[in-house]
Design a protein around this nucleic acid. Structure first.
Length: 376
RNA sequence: GUGCGUGUAGUUCAGUUGGUAGAGCACCAGAUUGUGGUUCUGGUUGUCGUGGGUUCGAGCCCCAUCGCGCACC
């Protein structure tokens, strides 16, 4: 797998690039729909490809390890074949889920022990078994096991947490290079930069992580409770440290405005549950602003869902109809909203690429941010 | 027709020995950032069926009346 930069915006740090994998190419900047348990909730793979044009999707090691489990995944021949998706997949290590989903957990030098949110059973993730697990899942891009430090952590905690993450990364890389892909196509892994909101920790973390980076590197521990401005500051701190030949992945982010601001600071890859989870809850993102489809004001608005939308749902269904589906708690509501939101997110990065190549991204971005943050 | 029961927010109901009403859901908004098909945070809503009476004071006690339910003629 490799990454090459193909264009750069003259007035910002935005850039375009191309990631090449054995499952096809990914044009960056890109947004990656989240498919935690082996499905992008409520969206057919056919729609993901043909309508949304997702070039890569996510899976999650924590969830897939618990269910269906490694035995089934191995017997299926890996996640691609299991869920019948022939484009690239990235798997998160599950470190974040251990911290966000599990109350009962313990972090040690060795790894993290936790109880399943499904049946309470006890498990341990170590850097070594996490590599093995992600080999079985078979993602094109594997993520290193890290500790996601809360955004409001004090310096002492953040420094200690970073040290742990760095120790885990060294072991993770060692195991990665000692093992082989299981299904005949290449796998790579991204190390993760932590360091909370402390610039010196972030820079130190970046320099350390870069020693293990192949095609790309991730920035984690952002959008986890710190002010948004702090997140942008950290991107401005870290991105210049990363050489141009590494793809930069901002984990778990974010709003459409976060994407645009991230791209302007040099980020190439994003993932976030927001378009799907908030979509299932009635929140729609559009070039006209944010809509809450549950609001009474749509009750008799029979105009098309989103006149600027790129998805077929935007022109086939009306606002009033979608509101009705949400009020009636029909699962079709979540499906339409997810399809729209993902198509919109992919449109945001597609238009960003277009403007970077045209050299007018910085100027266009200002207006775009205003549009996507307004309310309808 | 007779007997018993019942009537309180849009809805299901709570409401102590009488001190002018609350909850869940619904409804109206807001939050949600490496997904537990959620969760959280606010807000609106009442001629206590109606008319009288007792009382300083009635959702509560008394009378009448109307609606509904059940049982029996």
């Amino acid at each position: 797998m490799k990454f090459v930069q193909t264009a750069a915006d003259p007035h910002s740090n935005a850039r375009c690039g191309l990631i090449t994998t054995d499952h096809g190419e990914i044009r960056t900047p890109i947004f990656m729909p989240v498919g935690t348990v082996g499905s992008v909730k409520g969206v057919y793979h056919k729609e993901l490809k043909d309508d949304i044009n997702a070039e890569i999707i996510l899976g999650n090691t924590y969830h897939l390890y618990l269910r269906p489990g490694l035995k089934t995944l191995r017997a299926a021949g890996g996640l691609h074949r299991f869920e019948s998706w022939d484009r690239p997949i990235l798997t998160d290590s599950g470190g974040f889920q251990v911290f966000s989903l599990t109350q009962i957990r313990k972090i040690t030098e060795e790894g993290c022990t936790f109880q399943s949110h499904i049946d309470g059973s006890r498990h341990i993730f170590t850097p070594e078994n996490n590599v093995d697990t992600q080999r079985v899942i078979g993602a094109d891009i594997m993520m290193a096991l890290d500790e996601c430090c809360p955004g409001d952590a004090d310096y002492r905690y953040a420094a200690k947490s970073l040290k742990l993450t760095q120790g885990w990364l060294e072991r993770y890389a060692k195991r990665f290079h000692e093992t082989e892909p299981l299904y005949g196509y290449d796998q790579t892994f991204f190390p993760i930069i932590q360091g909370c909101v402390y610039p010196e920790l972030r820079i130190q973390a970046a320099e350390h992580a870069l020693r293990f980076a192949d095609a790309g590197i991730a920035i984690g521990g952002l959008a986890v409770g710190e002010p948004t401005e702090k997140m942008y500051e950290m991107l401005e701190t870290v991105c210049p440290v990363i050489p141009a030949d590494k793809a930069r992945y901002l984990m778990g982010v974010g709003t459409p405005a976060n994407l645009l601001e991230g791209i302007a600071r040099g980020i190439d890859m994003f993932d976030c549950v927001m378009p799907t989870r908030n979509g299932r809850n009635g929140m729609l993102f559009t070039w006209n602003g944010i809509m809450n489809m549950r609001n009474a004001k749509w009750e008799n608005d029979f105009s098309e869902l989103d006149p600027y939308g790129t998805s077929f749902v935007d022109h086939q269904y009306s606002k009033a109809y979608l509101r009705h589906l949400f009020v009636a708690k029909e699962m079709f509501a979540g499906m339409i909203a997810s399809e729209h939101n993902l198509a919109f997110y992919l449109d945001v990065v597609r238009q960003s690429r277009m403007h970077i190549e045209a050299g007018d991204f910085a100027e266009w971005k200002e207006e775009a941010v205003r549009k996507v943050t307004s309310r309808l």
